[in-house]
Design a protein around this nucleic acid. Sequence first.
DNA 1: AAGGCCATGTAACAAGTTACATGATTAA
DNA 2: TTAATCATGTAACTTGTTACATGGCCTT
Lengths: 176, 176
Amino acid sequence: MTELNPTAAAILGFLDAGELSGYDLAQTAAEVIGDFWHVTRSQVYRELAQLAARGLVEPGQPAARARQPYRLTEAGRAEFAKWIATPPPAEQIRYPLLLTIAFGDWLGPDRLLDMAAAHRPDHERRLATYRSYLADGGLDEYQRATVTFGIAYEEAVLTWLDQLPAILGGARSGHG
Amino acid sequence: MTELNPTAAAILGFLDAGELSGYDLAQTAAEVIGDFWHVTRSQVYRELAQLAARGLVEPGQPAARARQPYRLTEAGRAEFAKWIATPPPAEQIRYPLLLTIAFGDWLGPDRLLDMAAAHRPDHERRLATYRSYLADGGLDEYQRATVTFGIAYEEAVLTWLDQLPAILGGARSGHG
DNA sequence: AAGGCCATGTAACAAGTTACATGATTAA
DNA sequence: TTAATCATGTAACTTGTTACATGGCCTT
């Protein structure tokens, strides 16, 4: 048996709460873990097919609109338990804006600062959302832990954006 | 012509400095942008083949050990210039530890805190490295900008790790 | 009852990872 | 001069993205 990948594991984790279709699962994933683990519908369907083939999930009653729900099997539950007990690997960040900045000599500070500033509203919005989650209460400890990460992260990004003009201020464009 | 992907663009960007082999490019990428844009050697070779097919790079003199260097063409330079002038999309984060925490009910706070703590040395090490880059000087403004992001990010992670025990402290495991 | 929207899923493609192969160098 | 290591690249597989197809549901 191959190891579960994190996406497959998350699917099993969500199915623990009861039967869900691929569509539901994609939606749930987007809401609950979407900020640090992005999953598309296509991935969900593929993983569901493989999980079914391995006997870790099984199909329930089909319903309207071709809806096909799945539920967790005992083997699936066991496999999930094994996965979650495994120490997770390091995070990965892919930050296109930093790439642009790394080659920033081609653009010069002004264009770069504009591009960076364009990202600010997104971060402000997310930060506000996370803060309101905490303020509204109703989160369990685990959710509070992940949301608190989001807050720390967004604050860091905003702080960095604040510093950027001072850092890039002295530079001149080297290309055209 | 399809749009350049960021990895292909980075390859062109590095080739602006002169001829490099796929191996060199992979190495350079790991050093210069590896912290926010991970690229494997295999990707580099694939992109080089495609870039060559599109006339954006061209092969130079083969050398020992099957070394095949490439250089930028004028078309390649133009395409890179177009790419870097395009506003970059949002970053993506994939954080397996947060996934584990999101399903943390299965493990309980003690195991989670252990797992989280296991990541701390990595972050401390990276933070120290970034700080020494700044302290040693010799970085241009653009590098300082990306390194400063790294510092802000690692500080945020460490702060969050500090808060975790207090956040998870009250929880009990629900499974097992 | 017609038109538009939404839920649901599939298929094709692109990007990313892992494992392997091979011939030069270097060190013992 | 043999063994170990390193530079270089290829191939196979897995994961991630984008575009498409279809039919039920709701609104007018």
